Computed example of a mutant assay.
Amino acid sequence: MPTLFKKTLRSSVNVFNSKGMEPFRNHNSVIFIGDAQHAMSPFTGNGTNMATMDGYQLAEQMILAKHLSTAVQTYDDLCIPRSIKAIKMSHRTNAIGHSQGIWKYMWVAMLKIAAYCFGFNSKSEE
């Protein structure tokens, strides 16, 4: 790893934002969904799921509502609480992933116990 770090050009390194963006209500003529409305860390595995749910819920509301403004308002009412919950979960996941010291060993032990209880085995069974 030290050699890899030394040989890597600083200008070639990309930095990813691992923080979430608070969701906001839509207004005017543009409807935002997915990361455009509520970005979250790309390291927690929730972005695609949230965007899919957003698209489904917005389409459903557009079918059910008599007016576009009503559909968007109802969509926001469904999306924003769900997004806040997912962003908080992503913050917890990031905190666990960046744990150090005793907390790191505690999380690793808990994951190993959970893997054992659910029958996951790191060794391939032949």
Rank of each mutant, 00 (worst) to 15 (best):
R10Y: 07
P42V: 03
N14C: 04
K6Y: 06
V30W: 04
I63M: 08
E60D: 14
V30G: 12
Q57T: 13
H27D: 05
M21V: 10
T48A: 15
M62E: 00
G45N: 11
Q37W: 01
F24Q: 01
K19A: 10
T48M: 14
M50R: 08
I31D: 07
M62P: 00
R25I: 01
A65F: 03
T48P: 00
I63Q: 08
P23D: 10
E60W: 07
L68S: 14
N26G: 05
Q37G: 11
A65I: 00
T44D: 12
M53P: 02
E60M: 10
R25Y: 02
Y56H: 09
T52K: 10
T52P: 00
G47E: 04
L9H: 15
Q57P: 02
M53R: 07
G55S: 08
M1T: 05
P42A: 09
E60Q: 14
N46K: 05
P42R: 02
Y56S: 06
A39V: 03
R25V: 08
G45F: 03
G45S: 11
M62T: 10
L68D: 14
L58H: 13
L4T: 14
P42N: 05
T8K: 06
E22P: 02
L9Y: 08
H27Y: 00
G20T: 02
N14M: 02
L9P: 08
K7M: 12
F24W: 01
H27K: 06
L4K: 14
S11R: 11
A65K: 07
S11E: 15
P42H: 03
D54A: 06
I63S: 07
V13N: 08
L58R: 10
N49I: 02
D35F: 01
N26F: 00
H67Y: 11
F43V: 09
P2W: 09
G20E: 11
I33F: 08
S12T: 15
T3R: 08
A39D: 01
D54I: 01
L4V: 12
H38W: 04
L58I: 02
L58V: 11
K7S: 09
N17M: 02
M53K: 12
S18H: 11
K7H: 07
A65M: 09
D54C: 06
H38N: 13
N17I: 05
M53W: 11
L64Y: 00
N49K: 04
G45A: 11
K19E: 14
S29Y: 10
A65Q: 11
F43M: 10
M21L: 00
M1V: 07
E60I: 01
V15A: 13
M53C: 01
Q37V: 02
I31L: 04
N49Q: 11
A39C: 08
K19D: 14
M1G: 08
A59C: 12
S29G: 09
H27L: 03
A51Y: 04
S11D: 12
N26R: 00
Q37D: 08
L9D: 13
H67W: 04
L64V: 06
K6A: 12
R10C: 04
H38G: 13
P2M: 07
I33Y: 04
S18E: 12
H38C: 09
A59H: 03
M53D: 15
M62D: 07
T52A: 15
P42S: 06
